[in-house]
Amino acid sequence: MKQVFRSRMALVLGWIWMVFAAANAVDLIVRYSGPSSLTAAAVLGVMTALVFITCLRPAIILTEDGLLVRNPLRNTRVPWEAVDEVTVSHSIKIASGDGSVRCWAPQASARERAAAVRRGNPARTGSRTEPARSKGEQAAAEALAGKTHADWVADQITERAESAKRAATPAAGQPGAGADGSTGRQAAEPAGAADAQAVESGGPAGGAAATAGAMKVSWAPSALAALLAAAVLVVAAILA
């Protein structure tokens, strides 16, 4: 199951700017007046590129194979089996082996953290009483008590990683091909020993496992394209 998590406020503000930028771009094209229009287009292009890479692009995407962290300029892919620890301060940090990645979105602001704490410890003043909740509403309130959106996303990542690791671990004590399971166990032992020797010696088995479980970081083509388009508009405005 694919899940996408973003900063809701940044997403709303980003799309509002995109509509504003599109309307202004059309106006500049219709009322083109030479260098002044190019200068305005360059400013608009730079601002739009920055809004795109900081508000619309950042996200955490959970897939069947692992997670994808989209930060402003980089994409980071981490297989579920390689997720070692997920922590939250003002942002979500995912550790994998010797590396780690901090997620641009969603983040937990101090204001959101304080509001979450208040939800977890509701104050009772005077004779004010809260309306009765259903069992489902009460369970949801207890699950989210004291947690921000970033905390909840971190919990989802941790649960998916732990579930994937349990599924990848072979069940202990499975019977083999023989009637009493002894043949299967005897056949499995040499294979396990061979794998262990390959890992210790840095052979093919160990190298393949290390490569498959590694965190992969790459530049984001969409972010670079947006910056390149903005740079072209700036150069055109300077040369005009």
Rank of each mutant, 00 (worst) to 15 (best):
Ala226Gln: 04
Gln174Thr: 13
Asn75Val: 04
Ser100Trp: 04
Val153Pro: 01
Lys216Pro: 00
Arg74Asp: 15
Arg124Tyr: 03
Ala194His: 10
Ala231Asn: 02
Ala141Cys: 07
Glu200Met: 09
Ala59Met: 15
Arg118His: 10
Arg128Cys: 08
Ala172Gly: 00
Trp219Phe: 07
Val30Phe: 06
Arg102Gln: 05
Trp152Pro: 00
Ser33Arg: 06
Gly97Pro: 00
Lys135His: 12
Ala42Val: 08
Gln174Ser: 05
Leu28Cys: 06
Val234Gly: 01
Ser37Met: 06
Gly178Ile: 07
Gly34Asp: 09
Arg113Pro: 00
Glu137Gln: 14
Leu239Cys: 08
Gln107His: 07
Ala237His: 11
His149Ile: 06
Arg133Lys: 12
Leu233Val: 02
Asp27Gly: 06
Ala226Asn: 05
Met215Val: 06
Pro58Ser: 14
Ile61Ser: 15
Thr63Asn: 15
Pro131Thr: 14
Thr39Val: 15
Gly176Pro: 00
Pro35Met: 09
Glu159Thr: 10
Arg160Lys: 10
Gly97His: 03
Ala223Arg: 00
Ala214Cys: 00
Ala196Val: 12
Ala194Trp: 11
Glu85Asn: 07
Ala22Arg: 01
Ser222Ala: 13
Ser37Asp: 10
Gln197Tyr: 11
Ala214Pro: 00
Asp65Thr: 14
Ser100Asn: 06
Ala220Val: 01
Ala194Leu: 14
Ala25Arg: 04
Gly173Arg: 00
Ser109Thr: 12
Ser127Glu: 14
Ala21His: 04
Val26Tyr: 11
Gly202Gln: 09
Phe20Asp: 11
Val88Gly: 07
Pro106Arg: 02
Ala95Asn: 03
Ala191Gln: 04
Ala141Glu: 14
Val30Trp: 07
Arg70Ile: 14
Val199Tyr: 05
Ala141Lys: 09
Ala205Lys: 05
Ser37Trp: 03
Arg74Thr: 08
Gly99Leu: 05
Lys2Val: 10
